[in-house]
Design a protein around this nucleic acid. Structure first.
Lengths: 325, 325
DNA sequence: GCATTTATGTCAATCGGTTATCATATTTTT
DNA sequence: AAAAATATGATAACCGATTGACATAAATGC
């Protein structure tokens, strides 16, 4: 593999000048630029990013840590993050923490060891202290880690409100909400808050099923959903915390011969690809994943550049009506 | 951040000895090992992987290039590749080529520039020549790039055979196959071969709908499926090339009031998470994605170590019967 | 015609490990 | 007691690019 020196020799210039061309520093003439370009082409030269990172002691790589790759929400987030990273000239190191503290911690260390420019953290079980000393910008997405790090969220509470209002305006009077329960407080918990608020204000009774993180891992909620629907057979409106659970609710409904949306209306959350693949298609709360990814990367980019960035960015959600309401 | 020198000073040893401890080279006493350990802990030392990569001119990072992150098949593949990479001490640089030659080429260059140890290529539109000079081991998954690179595939032809046999044994007599069409020949095309073979052998008539790569990108096949099902209303058995298309077939069936599986049986391909989330759940051909990922990483690891590896590895598929047959 | 700007060369340190060479002990083996 | 194995030190080159200091020379401005 050709090195800078080779390019210098080939172009008849010195490493200093060639480096100046590559990094657009100082004075460079058009003729020098051309000579370097030609030499690079001739030698098929590609700068060694590793050497570059070493001397700059930072890289053009960012770490993306998610609790789950297979979960459609994170899949979509990863896809958008990769795209935004690409647009800004970053590469993505992908880490799947499986929601465990140990892997998360290990991955954060890998990020520092590999001198990533910054970290996008969609996973957040690690104690705050860990981030104290790493000296790398971190942007969280849909996590709370009250530590001065930039956070990007969607308006979860508003999502709960929209869902409740929609169900009630459709005439539902026996609501059921499937939400999260867990040790760590997460932004998604606010969905439950918003939902409750509206139900109480409108005096519409509702039941709650809070699921644990174990399900979050295997992502199979069928039995639990069947149980709760048998327990509350009069249920005519459901708001579930993700499209994955909503899809499984549809399966249970078929099994129990509950017509959707005629007898039971369902609203999911996320608006991922899956919500257009179920039969019937899911009405759901749209998270602006693309925009969240874009903003997260902007924040990270600005942090890396030493700029002061917003500590908290909340994006609006909206109701996407399809076939389950 | 503490460096090797700091550890040497702290432990009262020299960089040479500390390096020997870290890399398990030459003679090291237990006491030296201990001193180094303690010093590392005290200084919270993490080796700078960038510097390490530079001096070894290779890294513990692999590049994973896929044509699409959001497509469930690749999502699942990425998830498994990440896990297997983690187990072997590799990190994953993720690249989404969007099935374009330019991005693929660019990403391959990024891989070389970043001195990855190897590349897993799930995308394959790039001309073979590109791989001639990069000097990095490449393992392909479900792609043909007849270039001496190690390839991992599932037995696509067998998948087509299993699907056809199943449909026919269920009594279906008017089959329809939704397959791929494209400029580049891909292993997945063999599914069509296998399917045809059985149909012809058993004298069961069948129609074919070959979809183009454009659909592959947006992943919306609804209109096309509706059209073909209207054109061949007598269809009673379908074999579609992916679970994503199968899910959309279910939607069209509902719209056209075709009962599944009573009036029409459907078999998908891939056996991804999605196939358990549709209503009814999909009968499908199982691709052993986990094993494919594991083997791909083993091959890559062996290639990196300079071992001779199998040029082609074909894994068996199986029929997973759920609710659409 | 002198000052400034532009353009490049020369040289060397630096980033943080890796590794090889040679020297020098101490221990263990035979 | 001599030979071999074990253990560490000292030193420095090296990976490939970045960057700064300083020198020099041509082009441009006034």
């Amino acid at each position: 593999m050709a090195t800078l020196k080779d390019v210098a020799r080939e172009s008849g210039l010195t490493v200093g000048t060639v480096s100046r061309v590559l990094n657009n520093r100082g004075y460079i003439s058009d003729s020098a630029r051309e000579k370097v370009d030609q030499a690079m082409k001739k030698l098929n030269y590609r700068p060694n990013e590793v050497a570059r990172s070493l001397s700059k002691s930072t890289s053009s790589t960012i770490g993306v840590i998610v609790p789950h790759i297979r979960h459609p929400y994170f899949t979509e987030m990863i896809s958008n993050l990769e795209y935004q990273a690409y647009k800004k000239g970053y590469k993505v190191l992908l880490f799947n923490s499986r929601n465990t503290v140990e892997k998360e911690r290990e991955y954060i260390e890998m990020c520092t060891g590999n001198k990533v420019a910054g970290i996008i953290l969609c996973s957040g079980t690690v104690p705050v202290e860990v981030f104290g000393q790493i000296g790398i910008p971190v942007v969280t997405i849909e996590r709370f880690l009250d530590n001065g790090m930039a956070a990007v969220e969607c308006d979860n509470r508003q999502g709960g409100i929209l869902a409740a209002e929609k169900l009630i305006s459709c005439g539902c009077r026996h609501l059921l909400h499937v939400g999260n329960i867990g040790g760590v407080f997460m932004p998604a918990d606010m969905r439950t808050e918003g939902f409750r608020e509206v139900c109480e204000r409108e005096h519409v009774p509702f039941e709650e099923l809070l699921t644990e993180e174990i399900q979050y891992d295997s992502m199979m909620y069928g039995d639990m959903l069947e149980e709760v629907l048998r327990k509350y057979p009069e249920t005519d409106g459901m708001f579930v915390n993700s499209d994955v659970i909503a899809a499984q609710t549809l399966q249970v409904c078929r099994k129990l011969h509950i017509d959707v949306p005629e007898r039971l209306k369902i609203i999911g959350f996320d608006d991922v690809f899956l919500s257009t693949l179920t039969t019937p298609q899911l009405t759901t709360i749209h998270q602006p994943i693309r925009e969240m990814a874009e903003i997260a990367l902007n924040l990270l980019h600005d942090s890396v550049s030493g700029k002061l960035v917003a500590k908290r960015t909340v994006l609006p959600v909206s109701l996407v009506e399809r076939e389950t309401t």
